[in-house]
Amino acid sequence: MDRVALSPELELSRLVYGMWRIGDDADTSPRHVQAKIEACLEQGITTMDHADIYGGYTAEAIFGAALKQAPQLRDQMEIVTKCGIVAPAGRHSAVRGKHYDTSAEHINASVEASLRDLAVDRIDLLLIHRPDPFMDPDVTGPALDALVASGKVRAVGVSNFRPWDFSLLQSSMESELVTNQIEMSLMETSAFTNGDLAYLQERAIAPMAWSPLGGGSLFKNAGLMSILEGVAGEQGVDATAVAVAWLLAHPAGILPVLGTNNLDRIRKIGEAARLTIDRQTWFELYSAAIGKEVP
């Protein structure tokens, strides 16, 4: 499995395992979660993507219970998590409504909660989960810098930010924002043309892609599926691997974040990294996805 250096201090595996739905599994026991982690590690997938809000603020603790049972796994992986969304659930059940909080107090409290729940003493990559229209960059930026300086966080980045949100936060920071995790897939191609991806490429910042299979919606696109299945048949894999390989082929160096609770599917995630998607095939898939030829 290829690895990507986001900074001199941090490398991630090219494919990332996402924990968004870990709490939805019928079996959330430490032993079962450990089996998922080990299935990833066997393929060289060492990066685990979390957010404090996943599972109504329960997913990190589910993962942490597995690490407590098998602490030897910690040094074999990179832990990514996110903060900044406050919703009336779990430890925030008393709030009046969903909102964003990028204050220093909230970020620091979120990091402490994530460290405790994940059963780790350091977060490898902390992301601000959503752009906050009430953000004060002169507060948020120094708070992130301080976390890096403290050693509690190795590197920081953002998620779902537009270029101007990214620039605003970076302008108040000494640390570099090392990634932006945005939605990208054959069913969500806007980042390829709206400037989001170009902004990151210009700055040599590797993007992460959430929902790289479009939440399963790509399987409802008959024309797209026909091409995916054709390529899959030629390369001896399934259509899912081809859809992920389409992202991997892009010169921006995209890191797809894949989540499934099915152990058999987890064991096949790495297949995408072995595929070859040439330029013409890339555009055939792109054209099928947007429903027309490029201009």
Rank of each mutant, 00 (worst) to 15 (best):
L218Y: 13
R122G: 01
L213M: 15
S167K: 08
L144C: 04
E174Y: 05
V242D: 01
A209Q: 10
L118H: 08
S172H: 09
P212Y: 11
A239S: 04
A191I: 12
G141M: 04
L147W: 03
R122H: 05
I182P: 09
G223T: 11
S167I: 08
I128W: 00
L126K: 00
N180D: 06
L127H: 00
A239N: 02
D117N: 09
I123L: 02
N194G: 14
A204S: 10
A113M: 06
L186M: 15
S159V: 00
N221Q: 14
Y199N: 09
F166K: 00
S217M: 15
Q201V: 10
T193R: 15
N160P: 02
E202M: 13
A222Y: 11
E188Q: 13
L125H: 00
L169H: 05
T179R: 02
Q170W: 01
G223V: 12
M187K: 14
V139G: 06
S110H: 05
A243I: 03
G151M: 08
E183C: 10
D145M: 07
E176D: 09
D165N: 08
A239E: 01
G236Q: 06
P133T: 07
V111F: 04
G157V: 01
P137K: 06
G230D: 15
S171T: 07
A119Y: 05
E229M: 11
L197E: 11
K152H: 06
G223W: 13
V242Y: 01
S217L: 15
A198L: 11
M208F: 12
A204W: 12
A143P: 03
I182T: 09
